[in-house]
Design a binder for these strands. Structure first.
Lengths: 253, 253
DNA sequence: CGTCTCTTTGAATGGTATCAAACCCGGTGG
DNA sequence: CCACCGGGTTTGATACCATTCAAAGAGACG
C-alpha cells in the first residue's frame, strides 16, 4: 500500500507501478515483480510537460524511454525537405521511444499535444535491465511487433482507402482506444488539430474537414471544433469496413 | 575452412555461417561466436523452394525463422475481404518471420517469387537461445526496429507521393539493395509482377505500367518486361527526391 | 499455332488537391 | 463592451492525376 495516503493517481505522488491506475495498460504489468521493483527505483515521474513541448527530436540519441500517464502526444518524422509526417498519436499507457532501438537514436520526434505527465526510464538503466532480463526483452519485442502491426494497418488505410473510409477508421480507432482506457468512446475531444489528422491520414486539411462535415450531415457524428460525438456507431463502422474499396486486387501465388 | 572443397555458396553445402558468402549481410554476423556455433547446430538448410511456394501463411503459428540465401520473396497480408496487401520484398540476407514475435503467429504471409534457398531456424530452438542470450535479443530488437523504419518509409511513399515519385523510389530502393549485395545496381530483373509492384506502391497495374513507360520515354530507364536498366540515375534520384511534392496526393477511389 | 496470362496503351470518369474566400473563436487592446 | 486581430476551420469552384473501363499487344507454354 502506498505510504502516502493520497489518491493513487491524481496527485502524481505514488511511487510504485503497483499502485498506478494505468497499471493494466502499462507494459510494467508484463514483467517480473523483481524487474518492476528495479524499475521503480529508476523511474522518474515527470509532470507539467506542456503543450508543444518535445519529448525528443528525430536523430537525437535516446536518453530515456517514457510511458505516458496523462495527456496525449503526437509522433512524427521530418523529411529532408522539412515537411512533417505524422506517424501516430499516443494515449495514456502507451510507451514512447521504441523507435530508438535500432540505432540508439530516435527515428522520429514526439511532441505533447496538451499538458502531459510521464514516467521516464533512463536509457542506461533500461539497457542494463535488458541485458539481464530475457523476459523484459521479450516484452519489448512484443511491443515493437505490435507497433509494427499498427504501422502496417496504417499503411493499408493511408495508401488504399478513400477519404471517408480513412476518417471513419480514424474516429473508430480513437474511440476504441479511449474505451480501453475507460473513457467515453462516444464523446471525446480531438487533442490534435485538423492538420495533424490530415497528415496522419495522408489527406489535406480541407478534405478532412469536408469529410467530417459530410459525416455530420448524414447524422453519423456530431462535430464542433475539436469535440466529437459519435451518434451512429453502426453506420460509422459500416463506412469503415465495406465502403466500396478502390483498387486492391486478388493475390497470385 | 570448409571441409568441402567446392565453391562457398553455389553448392549450398557449407555447414557453417562463417563460410557463408552472405555472412556480411546476415544477422548471424552480429551475435557471439558461441551463439553462432549453436545456430549452426540447429539450422536447416533448405533449397528447391520453388516459385509460388509459401514459407508461411498469416495466422499460422510460427514454426521457424528463416534467412533467405538466394531468390526473392514477397511478404503480404490478406484482409477480411480477401484482398492482398503487399508489404515488402525480401532479398538474400534478409530475415523472414519477425512478424510472429508479438503473438507467436505470423501476421502476414510470405511466398517465393522464384526458386529460393533458405536457412531455417526452428522457433523452439530460437526461443531457447533468446531466453539465454541478451545479445541475441538486442539484435532482434534492432532488426525489428529496422523493419519498423522501413514500414514508416513505405508509409510516406504510399500515402503521399505521386505515381512517378513512388515508382522512382521503388526502383532506386531495389537498386541500392542489389548494390549492397554486390549485384549490378543498374541492370536487374524484377522478380515480382506488375500487380505486386502496384499493390506494394498503392497504385494500379495500369498506372505502374504507364509510369514505367514514361520513364523510358524520358530516357531515364529502359524496361522490357521484367528487365530493367537504369540509364540516368541522377534523373531518377531527382524525381524521387524533389519532384514537386503535393501536400498530399491521393487518387480516385 | 492456339491459348492463357501478363503487360501496355487509349479514352473517359471521378475523387481529391488546389486555390480562394468566408467563417468562427479566443485573445487583445482601445 | 466592442472592434480588431490571427489562427484554425469550413465551404466553394476548378483543375488534375490516378482510376476505371476497354482493348490491343507481347510472352510463355502446351
Amino acid at each position: 500500500m502506498p505510504a502516502t495516503s493520497k489518491g493513487p493517481d491524481h496527485t502524481g505522488q505514488q511511487h510504485s507501478c503497483n499502485d498506478c491506475v494505468l497499471f493494466s495498460l502499462c507494459f510494467a504489468q508484463d514483467i517480473d515483480p523483481e524487474a518492476r521493483e528495479r524499475l521503480n527505483g529508476v523511474i522518474r515521474r515527470r509532470q507539467g510537460v506542456h503543450r508543444s513541448a518535445h519529448l525528443h527530436h528525430g536523430g537525437q540519441s535516446a536518453r530515456q524511454l517514457a510511458v505516458l500517464r496523462s495527456g496525449s502526444i503526437k509522433a512524427y518524422q521530418v523529411s529532408r525537405e522539412g515537411d512533417e509526417l505524422v506517424t501516430g498519436f499516443y494515449l495514456p499507457g502507451d510507451i514512447i521511444g521504441l523507435d530508438a532501438f535500432s540505432t540508439g537514436e530516435h527515428a522520429g520526434s514526439a511532441v505533447a499535444l496538451e499538458e502531459c505527465r510521464l514516467c521516464e526510464i533512463p536509457m542506461a538503466d533500461f539497457n542494463k535491465m535488458l541485458g539481464e532480463s530475457p523476459r523484459l526483452n521479450q516484452v519489448m519485442l512484443r511491443l515493437l511487433a505490435e507497433e509494427m502491426a499498427e504501422a502496417r494497418r496504417l499503411l493499408l488505410v493511408v495508401g488504399r482507402l478513400d477519404a471517408k473510409t480513412r476518417v471513419a477508421l480514424f474516429l473508430l480507432s480513437l474511440s476504441r482506444r479511449l474505451e480501453r482506457r475507460e473513457l467515453d468512446p462516444d464523446l471525446f475531444r480531438l487533442s490534435m488539430d485538423r492538420r495533424d489528422i490530415a497528415n496522419y491520414l495522408g489527406l489535406t486539411i480541407e478534405t478532412v474537414s469536408r469529410t467530417l462535415s459530410t459525416l455530420q450531415r448524414d447524422g453519423i457524428i456530431h462535430v464542433r471544433g475539436k469535440n466529437v460525438r459519435i451518434l451512429e456507431r453502426e453506420a460509422l463502422a459500416a463506412l469503415a469496413q465495406l465502403e466500396d474499396r478502390p483498387r486492391s486486387r486478388q493475390a497470385a501465388g
